[in-house]
């Protein structure tokens, strides 16, 4: 049942996020092409305006993909669970766990793909800038420079594998947390008798504020301790922050999942 739910959830939502990410990559290439004839070297009137416009478009597209996809996924979740579509969703022979997990998994994948899309677009933009502005620099040379930098850092006593693991863990945990913030707040918003959407938005900001405060309270002593008692360098401090943030994200996500499941199972009241 879970596999079928995931399949149909994927089919229901893949188009819009994929189009947005695809458009961002195209715009990144267009923005990168402006470096063929950079404005500061061009004498052609009007070209500078066009270049700046393309850069602004690229910047707005990045925001559009990150916010747009998040908003779209939130709206789809709300529609499929708590509007007329919910009459079909909640009469499927599936448990509330299966319904929620299928939606959370597909949403998380799309939030992750959005992040990957944004990262790739910046890479394309930056790569094309280097390619056209400094053609003497080869990608291979750059890679060697990066490796040398990491080796130097490694000699200072940093465990690179552990540092990379902390970043990956934090990224995965925060992506799942992003999904759970959406689902959790929308489910909590349904407890409001009227203005359920406003209730959901309010719940989102309330949860976010609480998580930020808890995060600061938990992380600050650790950061200060690392900074003043054991000066082991910025990377170790960052790694400990990333692990801490990751764990916090996991805890919040687990809490929000069970809260959401409880609301769906015990307090589902479709109008």
């Amino acid at each position: 049942m879970l596999g079928k739910l995931i399949k149909h959830e994927w089919k229901a939502i893949w188009k819009i996020p994929a189009i947005l990410i695809g458009a961002l990559l195209v715009i990144a290439v267009l923005a990168g092409l402006t470096f063929i004839s950079p404005v500061w070297r061009s004498g052609m009137g009007g070209l500078d305006v066009l270049t700046v416009l393309v850069w602004i478009l690229f910047y707005l597209s990045i925001i559009g993909v990150s916010m747009g996809n998040l908003l779209y996924l939130a709206i789809r979740f709300y529609q499929s669970m708590f509007t007329d579509e919910g009459y079909l969703t909640h009469t499927l022979p599936a448990t509330s766990h299966q319904l929620l997990i299928s939606k959370i998994m597909v949403m998380t994948v799309w939030i992750f793909l959005s992040m990957v899309g944004i990262f790739c677009s910046i890479l394309i933009f930056g790569g094309m800038a280097i390619l056209f502005l400094q053609p003497e620099i080869s990608i291979w040379n750059m890679w060697e420079d990066i490796c040398r930098e990491f080796e130097a850092i490694g000699m200072l006593g940093l465990n690179l594998v552990s540092f990379a693991a902390s970043i990956i863990f934090m990224l995965i945990a925060s992506t799942v947390n992003g999904t759970m913030m959406i689902t959790g707040s929308i489910c909590m918003g349904q407890m409001v008798n009227k203005h359920k959407i406003l209730g959901s938005i309010g719940a989102y900001f309330a949860i976010n504020t609480v998580v930020q405060i808890v995060g600061m309270v938990v992380m600050l002593p650790n950061m200060l301790k690392t900074r003043f008692e054991a000066p082991i360098g910025v990377f170790q401090m960052l790694a400990s922050i990333y692990w801490g943030m990751g764990v916090l994200c996991v805890l919040v996500s687990v809490g929000l999942y069970f809260l959401s499941e409880y609301f769906v199972r015990r307090h589902l009241n479709l109008d």
């Binding site: 009459y87 009469t91 022979p93």
Partner: peptide, 13 residues
């Protein structure tokens, strides 16, 4: 739900 077929008063597609 595997054995109940339900037609609500609204369209749910």
């Amino acid at each position: 739900k595997a054995h109940v077929s339900y037609l609500p008063e609204r369209t749910y597609f």
